[in-house]
């Protein structure tokens, strides 16, 4: 499974699922980097597309991991656009995957959460295939904030 997650601690914690050299044909966990320009934002979304595209052709699972603050709009406009865009992308892919049993979901996490806990959530989602198209929030910083 391909792990492409900008957060180095989380990427390392996801080692049980795969690695940066893993095959996207076996599944994808993608977490975007923070961005400061539109060009960077577009590039992160294109990275997500490229990996999810390969996974979709093989009906392999896809999980997007995003910063929880960005996912509720409490971030710079570009970081929020990338995060909420991926939330929506996870839903669209989950719909497409229903016929072929391809799994897709999104995990939002805040930086105060131990990476191991976030990784365990991703592993559980992939293994159990629950929460298709849903955004699972890990952490307490945004309790009560309305998800987009």
């Amino acid at each position: 499974m391909r792990i492409h997650v900008a957060d180095a601690a989380l990427a390392a914690a996801l080692g049980g699922l795969g690695s940066a050299e893993g095959r996207p044909e076996d599944g994808v966990v993608f977490g975007p980097a923070e961005v400061t320009t539109w060009a960077e934002a577009e590039e992160e979304l294109i990275r997500a597309y490229r990996l999810a595209h390969v996974a979709a052709r093989e009906n392999a699972p896809v999980v997007f991991v995003v910063d929880a603050a960005a996912a509720v709009g409490r971030a710079t406009p570009l970081d929020a656009a990338v995060a909420v865009g991926l939330v929506a992308g996870g839903r669209c892919l989950a719909f497409e995957g229903l016929r072929k049993d391809q799994y897709a979901s999104v995990v939002g996490y805040d930086g105060s959460e131990p990476a191991a806990r976030v990784a365990a959530t991703v592993e559980f989602l992939v293994a159990s295939a629950v929460g298709r198209g849903q955004t699972v929030m890990v952490g307490t910083a945004h309790v009560g904030a309305m998800l987009p």
Binding site: A81, A83, A88
Partner: peptide
């Protein structure tokens, strides 16, 4: 279904709206 690109773009617009 069939709108991964459009869904990401329009979800992103909601992210922009909030931020």
């Amino acid at each position: 279904v069939g709108q991964f690109n459009y869904g990401i773009a329009k979800g992103g617009v909601i992210g922009l709206t909030r931020a």
